[in-house]
Amino acid sequence: MYDFIQKFHSGWAYLALLVLVVAVVNSFIGMSSKKEFTSKDRKIALFALIAIHIQLLVGIILYFVSPLGFASFGQMADKALRLTSLEHPLINIIAIILITIGWSKHKKLVASESKFKTFSIFYGLGLLLILSRIPWNMWF
């Protein structure tokens, strides 16, 4: 069971990151070109939100069944264990909160430029935080 969840978490991460990058790039392009915010733009941001939340749910399950997660919480002297048991989950939860705030804020806005700007800021910050805490040595 653990192996399947771990492989799914690692594999889904590629898709979730790709969709999030597309959403951030789309929001920057929309903001800089001053184009109209369409349903296509909303769907791109929504798919990124859904993909990231699925990644969070799988990650929470993995955290409690993994020997590198909650079980190794007391071993903070080891950098690799600290990354997987504390830094990676905490920073990614903060990033997902920022992405969710960006989604919620855009619904209250009317102007297209404001919507693109909101997505650029919140999704962009979320993406940067996620990229900063990925255990890159486990990816390749």
Score class of each variant (00 low, 15 high):
Lys43His: 07
Leu17Phe: 15
Ile93Cys: 03
Ala16Tyr: 05
Gly126Tyr: 04
Gly126Trp: 04
Ala16Asp: 03
Val58Gln: 01
Leu20Gly: 03
Leu57Ile: 15
Ala80Ile: 11
Val110Thr: 15
Asp41Ser: 09
Val22Tyr: 11
Thr100Ala: 07
Lys40Met: 06
Phe119His: 06
Arg133Asp: 08
Ile121Arg: 07
Leu56Ala: 12
Ser27Ile: 05
Leu83Cys: 02
Ser39Met: 11
Gly59Asn: 03
Gln55Ile: 05
Glu87Phe: 08
Ser85Asn: 11
Met31Ser: 10
Thr118Gly: 05
Ala77Ser: 15
Ile97Asp: 09
Phe119Leu: 12
Ser85Lys: 00
Arg42Cys: 08
Asp3Glu: 13
Leu18Ile: 13
Gln75Phe: 07
Leu90Pro: 07
Ala13Pro: 06
Trp136Ser: 08
Thr118Ser: 13
Thr100Pro: 00
Thr38Trp: 04
Ile121Glu: 06
Asp78Thr: 09
Phe70Met: 10
Ser66Asp: 01
Lys43Ala: 11
Ile29Tyr: 15
Leu125Arg: 03
Leu49Met: 12
Ser120Trp: 05
Ile54Pro: 02
Gly102Ser: 11
Ala48Phe: 06
Ala13Thr: 13
Arg133Ile: 07
Leu15Ala: 12
Lys115Glu: 02
Leu62Val: 02
Gly69Glu: 01
Phe28Pro: 03
Lys40Cys: 01
Thr38Asp: 05
Gln6Lys: 14
Ser112Thr: 04
Leu98Val: 09
Arg82Glu: 14
Trp136Lys: 07
Val58Lys: 03
Lys115Val: 00
Asp78Ala: 10
Ile54Arg: 01
Lys7Thr: 03
Ile5Pro: 00
Lys34Val: 01
Leu86His: 06
Phe4Cys: 00
Ile29Asp: 11
Lys79Phe: 12
Leu128Gly: 09
Gly59Ala: 06
Met138Cys: 04
Gly30Met: 08
Gly11Ser: 11
Gln75Glu: 11
